[in-house]
Design a protein around this nucleic acid. Sequence first.
DNA 1: GTTTCGTTATAAAACGGTTTATATGAAAAG
DNA 2: CTTTTCATATAAACCGTTTTATAACGAAAC
Lengths: 340, 340
Amino acid sequence: MKAKATSFDIAYQAGVSQSTVSRALRNSPLVNEETRIKIQNIAKELNYKVDKNASNLRSQQSDTIALLLFEDPSNDDSSINPFFLSMLGSITRACSNKGYDLLVSFQQSSNDWHADFEDTNKADGLILLGYGDYEDYQEKLIKLIEQDTHFVLWGAEVKDLPITSIGCDNYQGGMKVTEHVIKQGRKNFAFLGDASSHSPEFLARYQGHCQALKNNNLEINEHLKVDAIFTEEAGYQAACELLERGEAFDAIFAASDLIAVGAMRALQEKSITIPEQVAIVGFDDIAVASFTFPPLTTVKQDTQLAGDILVTKLLQLIDGEKVGASLIPADVVVRKSCGA
Amino acid sequence: MKAKATSFDIAYQAGVSQSTVSRALRNSPLVNEETRIKIQNIAKELNYKVDKNASNLRSQQSDTIALLLFEDPSNDDSSINPFFLSMLGSITRACSNKGYDLLVSFQQSSNDWHADFEDTNKADGLILLGYGDYEDYQEKLIKLIEQDTHFVLWGAEVKDLPITSIGCDNYQGGMKVTEHVIKQGRKNFAFLGDASSHSPEFLARYQGHCQALKNNNLEINEHLKVDAIFTEEAGYQAACELLERGEAFDAIFAASDLIAVGAMRALQEKSITIPEQVAIVGFDDIAVASFTFPPLTTVKQDTQLAGDILVTKLLQLIDGEKVGASLIPADVVVRKSCGA
DNA sequence: GTTTCGTTATAAAACGGTTTATATGAAAAG
DNA sequence: CTTTTCATATAAACCGTTTTATAACGAAAC
């Protein structure tokens, strides 16, 4: 293959200077239309493509954003949380709509924060995507802020830090889905999930849940609350623990669909019928939720919208605008598992 | 924020030349250990990061590969095929293990092939990921070859073109899963899927399926074969069509899990019991497969391995090696839907 | 017929590294 | 003591653009 054509080759063929070529290809008003068309034709003919490294180097922007996915370390090699996968899809789409390229990277464990995409000028900004627990990363977030890195973060608001976070309205979601189950006549709710400051999203869901109970004069029974991280296995374990406690309950609110799915497995092993004996609801509306048996009632986070907002706000930040946090509505998706 | 430090700043502080800095930071043997350590310390202190655009420009390589995802145009805005999402995950992991960055892009429709990642030097090579039907893209593949673009392709071998394709052993998979169902005593098989040259993978699965029937002296009934693209909706439609034909059958081999899931929905609507009246098996082993009711027997494609091989082979191509196509084993995952 | 202005093009200077060709000084060889 | 050799460092060229500072030219203004 002959060497790749450069803007100089085009300049030579067109009988103009290289800078004119550069301008013509970017439709600069500084070049006469006739000249521009001639140059663009030659460029097409030579199959010329602008060298992004050169152009990015000079212009100091990459038209690229980087997506950093945080996986829980416990989730070593298995499959990725389907909710994030779904987000990833919508973010990719949103980027390409805006004419940006997307770099994807997994932050596999907390010790390697070495994907310095913006520092190295590979990207103009970052999207941080993980499940709660940014506390572990707090010092790293601070470092990002200090370095004036442009980034947005999926999840609950990070307290005391000026961070543009975009998240689902977990509180509303938890409240709405709980109220829906209450309307089915359930009174004794168990909660599965880590409702601590380590998981601000789970915490918000739990608080919404509690609010719904209060609004309906129902008791919040701490004995029916079991910790669990967001995985299916954790859900299974938590449900087993719950059953061992021997406390009576007729409904479960799981902080994530994966937890719910794991819990269903545990219940079914003990031949507890869903939703007759125990109603169960989750959160996220992952693809699997509509295929469980019975299908899982859950709270849908609009990932399409979320991806769009994440990208849009990030681009605004890059443009130097000030943008605040925002919440995306959470809607209950009613299926069979809640006894409706 | 003060201007970002450059290698010149470090050179100045260290009292050496800029080229020495460049070498020191890349652990070149041309620089004395003492000097190197001094320089690296200063770099750390200044929070210096190599500008990738500059370094890529000069060295003419990006340590980045691009993943192009082909979605069926019919699948306009809905969710992405979970199988690809799973591949995406494993490819991302494989890349980061090899120290490469990954650009992700959706080729939304056939008309915009403008993600010229390699031509623009944004990436050193390409991974093409789609479901069969590369025929539509044939001319574009030819163009890629002509331009000496480095790329690997997921899927069946493309005939007559020197392309490094990596795919699952669809033939074996189709055969093995069919034989497994035959062992359960089923004799009248329906096939749902587009078994044409448009979908070389589905075709191979079908051919393996037929081989298994032949090996067991069973009849291949063309009336029980219904076309379907790879989506759930297509599976639903195809199953309805199949039922309307009125031909008797006691087993379905669906060319993909999504088709199988759609077909199950159709059967259940007609109150046909699975697996008692009709056994059904799919292909891919997407996450949903283990949560359907009954859980779906299917053929697992090892996406972890696939991602690894795709990346490894692409890097070999980039290194100038010749690498051939390869097949990944397909293993039957037995669940309830086949009547085992 | 100068002067002024607007349009279009150019030459040259970045951008921040990597790499090639070259220099320096000390140790080894003659 | 001179010549080679080796290890280390440097200066300068280069990668292919974008951008800034200038120039050239014809038309309009004076």
